[in-house]
Amino acid sequence: MKIFGIQLNKRTFIRWKIYIDRARMYIGYISFVMIAFMFLNDFKDETIRSFLDENKLITYPVMMVMFLLFSLILGRLDTKLGLRKEEMRNSATENPVTMEILSDLKEIKNKLES
Rank of each mutant, 00 (worst) to 15 (best):
Leu8Cys: 08
Ile27Thr: 05
Ile35Gly: 09
Met66Ser: 04
Tyr26Glu: 07
Asn55Pro: 00
Pro96Gly: 04
Thr93Val: 10
Lys56Met: 06
Ile20Trp: 08
Glu87Ser: 10
Asn90Arg: 12
Tyr26Thr: 02
Asn95Asp: 03
Asp104His: 14
Leu68Ile: 15
Lys85Arg: 15
Leu102His: 09
Leu105Asn: 11
Arg84Tyr: 09
Trp16Ile: 07
Asp45Lys: 00
Ile48Arg: 05
Arg84Val: 04
Met38Glu: 15
Phe51Ile: 12
Asn110Val: 11
Ala23Phe: 05
Glu54Gly: 00
Glu94Leu: 13
Ile58Pro: 01
Gly28Trp: 01
Phe4Gly: 07
Asp42Met: 12
Phe4Asp: 15
Met63Thr: 05
Leu40Lys: 01
Ile3Gly: 03
Ile101Asp: 01
Ile58Val: 10
Ser114Glu: 14
Arg49Lys: 10
Val97Ile: 13
Ile101Phe: 09
Ile35Gln: 13
Glu100Gln: 07
Trp16Lys: 04
Glu107Gly: 13
Asn90Trp: 09
Phe37Ser: 06
Asp45Pro: 03
Arg24Phe: 06
Gly5Glu: 03
Arg11Asp: 15
Lys111Ser: 11
Tyr26Val: 08
Lys10Val: 13
Ala92Gln: 07
Met25Tyr: 12
Gly82Asn: 07
Lys85Gly: 08
Ser114Gln: 15
Phe67Ser: 03
Asn41Tyr: 08
Leu74Cys: 01
Leu69Thr: 07
Trp16Tyr: 09
Lys80Phe: 14
Val97Phe: 12
Asp42Cys: 12
Arg76Glu: 14
Lys109Met: 10
Lys106Arg: 15
Leu72Met: 15
Lys44Glu: 04
Thr59Gly: 05
Asp42Asn: 11
Glu107Cys: 14
Phe43Arg: 02
Ile18Ala: 09
Tyr29Leu: 10
Gly82Gln: 06
Ile108Ala: 09
Val33Phe: 10
Ser31Thr: 10
Asn110Gln: 14
Gly28Lys: 05
Thr12Arg: 02
Met1Arg: 09
Ile14Ser: 04
Gly82Ala: 01
Pro61His: 00
Phe32Glu: 02
Asp45Met: 02
Ser103Met: 14
Leu112Thr: 06
Thr47Tyr: 07
Ile58Thr: 06
Ala23Asn: 06
Phe67His: 00
Asp78Tyr: 07
Asn110Ile: 10
Ser91Gln: 10
Gly5Pro: 04
Asn110Tyr: 05
Met64Ile: 07
Asn41Gln: 08
Asn41Arg: 15
Asn55Cys: 00
Gly75Cys: 02
Lys85Asp: 15
Ile35Arg: 11
Thr93His: 06
Ile48Leu: 01
Ala23Glu: 04
Ile20Lys: 05
Tyr19Pro: 02
Phe39Gln: 04
Phe32Thr: 05
Arg11Asn: 09
Asn90Tyr: 06
Met88Ile: 15
Lys17Gln: 15
Ala92Trp: 00
Ile14Cys: 05
Val62Trp: 02
Thr98Tyr: 04
Met63Cys: 03
Ile58Ser: 03
Met64Lys: 00
Lys10Glu: 08
Ile30Trp: 07
Leu57Trp: 08
Ile101Arg: 07
Ser31Asp: 11
Ser50Met: 08
Ala23Val: 03
Lys56Pro: 00
Phe51Gln: 04
Glu46Gln: 14
Ile30Glu: 08
Thr12Ile: 04
Leu57Arg: 11
Met63Glu: 03
Asp104Ala: 11
Glu54Cys: 06
Ala23Tyr: 03
Met34Gly: 08
Phe4Trp: 13
Asp53Phe: 06
Ile101Tyr: 04
Val62Thr: 00
Leu77His: 07
Phe43Pro: 01
Leu102Asn: 14
